[in-house]
Amino acid sequence: MRVAIIIFNYFIWHYGQALKSLLVLYRNFFQFSFNFFSLSLMFRTWISPWRRLDLDYQGNIFNAGQWFEAFVVNILMRLVGFLIRTIIIIVGLGVLVLLSLSLPLVLLSWLVLPFGVVVAFLVGLGLLFLP
């Protein structure tokens, strides 16, 4: 009787509250990935100079060399920043895409999991005892 109560309530949970929790769990993972790869910051600062290593434009029209030097350095620093951030953005977006793709699969697996466990047990018994 006790086992029957547990199994009955378990199934109510498995196909009810647990499904909702699974979606919440996914939301947490999305949030974590978004935060871990700092995607919002990466997009906002995509072409910012690397670690603020930029020079001030101190030259003028009569001293174009100095101005040009600062220009080149700043372009280079922005390029370095852009490249590294692009890599992180690609990896981060990749993880988010993978997470999204895995959601239907995980949901489906969750739905068949109780049966899968029973099937695995029966297959195991068959392999163990059948010649």
Binding site: N28, Q31, F36, L41, M42, R51, R52, L53
Partner: peptide, 18 residues
């Protein structure tokens, strides 16, 4: 979320100076 977010994000200080 409170346990997952304990890990600091990658490159959060790249935008700021050394």
């Amino acid at each position: 979320p409170e346990n997952l977010l304990r890990r600091p994000g990658i490159g959060q200080d790249w935008v700021y100076g050394e």
